[in-house]
Structure formats: C-alpha cells, structure tokens
Design a protein around this nucleic acid. Sequence first.
DNA 1: ACCTGAACACCGTTCAAGT
DNA 2: ACCTGAACACCGTTCAAGT
Lengths: 195, 195
Amino acid sequence: MTPDRPYHHGNLRQAVLEQATPVVRDRGASELSLRELAAAVGVSHAAVRRHFPDRRQLHDALAVEGFALLGTRLRDAVDAAPDYRAQIHSLARAYLDFVTSEANLAELMFAHKHGEGGEAVSAAAEAAFAPMLLVFERGLADELEDTSPQRTALIFFATLQGLAGLVNCGMITADQLGGLIEEAVAQFPQGRVGR
Amino acid sequence: MTPDRPYHHGNLRQAVLEQATPVVRDRGASELSLRELAAAVGVSHAAVRRHFPDRRQLHDALAVEGFALLGTRLRDAVDAAPDYRAQIHSLARAYLDFVTSEANLAELMFAHKHGEGGEAVSAAAEAAFAPMLLVFERGLADELEDTSPQRTALIFFATLQGLAGLVNCGMITADQLGGLIEEAVAQFPQGRVGR
DNA sequence: ACCTGAACACCGTTCAAGT
DNA sequence: ACCTGAACACCGTTCAAGT
C-alpha cells in the first residue's frame, strides 16, 4: 500500500536483525558491520544507529534471539523424552547440536559479559536454561544428598559447554562427540539417584 | 652500543609481542591494533607487518606464548600434589585460576580455530595439556574399564573449560567456583578407581 | 633483508540539517 | 520521531621507494 521506499522504513529494527542473522551465522559476529547492514536494507548508516546505537546493542538483540531459539530446542528435547534419564541424554544432544551447528551464534551469545547493562540478555539466557534446571529439580527431588539441583545442572551445563568448545575450536571432531556425550552423561546424578 | 634508534630495530618481533601482551590482558584481543602497536614501539605500521602479516599471525604468536605459560602452571600443579586424587584437584584449581585471571588471553587461545594453518598453536596447546593427560594415564593405568584416559581427560578438561566460561561471562561468581570444582571433581574417575 | 610514507577502502561515531 | 549526508579519526592492506 505504501510506496516502495517510504521515508520511514516502518520496521527498520526488525529488518536489520533479519539482515544480520545470516551474517553472524555464516561469517561470525566480528564480521558484522552496521554500515554494511544499513546498505543491505537500503537505508543510511546513521538510520540504523538510531535503533542500535553501537555494535554491542545489536549483539545483545541477536543474543536474545539466539537464547529464545535455544530455549525452544531444549524444551522440545525434554518433552520428547519419557523419563529423567532419557531427558538428560536428550538435553545433551540438543544442546550440543545447537552449539555446534550454530557455532558463531553461540559464540556471540556467550561472549557477552552478562550483567553489564545487558539485563535483557541475562533474562533470555535464564529462560532458555529453565527447562534444563527443571529436569534436575524433578529428577533429584527425592534425593537427600548434599548437592543441589542447581549445582548439578550448572556442572552438567558446563560440561556440555566445554565439549562444544572443544569441537568448535577443532580439538575434537563432531564424530567423537557422540561417545563423549555418553560417557559424560554416565557420570551424572543418576549414579547417585539410581544406587 | 648501537645508536638509540638504529634503522633496524633488531628485535622488532619480540618488542611487538611484549607490547601486545598487556593490551590483550587488560583490554582483550579485539582491541589489538597493529598500527597502535607499531606506534608504541616507535616504528612504522608497515614494519610490524613484515613480522606479523595480519592480525591472525599476531594472535597465533600470542596464543603460543599463552599455552606455554599454561603448560608450566599445570606442570607445577601436578608436581605440587602427592597423589592422583590430589593432582586432579590441583589441576582443576590451577587451570581455573589461569583461565579466570587471564580471561582475555584464554579467550584468544581458544577462540582460535585449530588446524587452519596454525599448527604451531595446536602443537603448543597439546604440549600444555600433556601434564593433565599424563595424570589420567597414570591414575587409570590399573583400570580395566571400557573408558580411556584420553576420553576421561577430555571430559575433565571440558568441564573445567565450561566452568571457566560460566564465570567469565558472569553467570556464576568466582566465589561459587570453589564449591563447584569440588562437586565436579568428585564425579570423576576416582569413583570408578576407588570402588 | 628490513623499514618508510603515501594511498586506498573500510569502519564506528558525531552532528547539523532535512521530512 | 525518524532519517540523511558530510565530516572525523581510526583501522587493515598494498605498494613503490628508500637504506
């Protein structure tokens, strides 16, 4: 209805994000250029700076999107598994699949220093990991051990994150990952719960 | 003996590295500028480009230095502990101390994609982790389990790396780290060895 | 072999001015 | 409120020329 190129773009913020998404996925966050994005959506470079005053704010917005995507993946992983044990396996596979297939996006998501004015990012991250925490809370509810579900979830997550880092920096291949996941998961709380 | 500023610097490569070290430690690898470093050592920007044709080569050289430092820390940690169990604890603390106190350097070291022309970096990394691998090989030598020391060492390392990432991106504080290390280490092979 | 200086294309950032 | 265009300081990169 409106002319092909009205003075006001109307949805510039969203357009920039959509333009940025494939760039960060294929070329990495460091290759993001506000000027290049502006040119790509056909607007002056100063215009996009109104929505994203600097690169950090753009990174934050992309990180929030990334965590939203990760959250749905983890939730689906939990829903698809019948019991606690299977859910842990399912979570591990889903998480590593995300982090390795979207390596550049994941790097952007975790490179960000939380708590430096990026409350939105922190909140998005917390929401994304909620399904994982929930699994451990349910699975370890009948435990009287001195360990808390939060701590177990944190270590579980750290292990996955570490394995993902190893494959992303080339120290191990994606092939080896499956076996390592099995072995890593085997060390986890079920050892205590089941015994 | 030579004049104060001879035409040939004589040790330009080393001088640039020494100039770069505090920059990456205090401000991060992304703040490294070949031009700024050249100005700091008092040489034209094109001169340093003869030793480091691009930023990546400078990063590689700094990563090699970083892995050398990490290697000595890990070796010292092993030497200072009496037995297998204590060595694992000592390694975990030493590694996390390094990665959190030298967060920017560690980020540079692991951001690098191994095997993309950076064989020197890969070799330095392998040498740095040799002490860790050795501990598991000795500690698990009498094991007949289906797990290999390499795999255990890899998962152990991944867990540490993951925990370091959590503190560096602000998801947990350095205070919580001690307890998490204890709990994480407790899950490791001694559970199998000791039983 | 090693270094200089000028040039090029790019970037983020700022700002007065337009609609 | 949103966008433009010019300007500034910085960057990596290339290259002919100097010692």
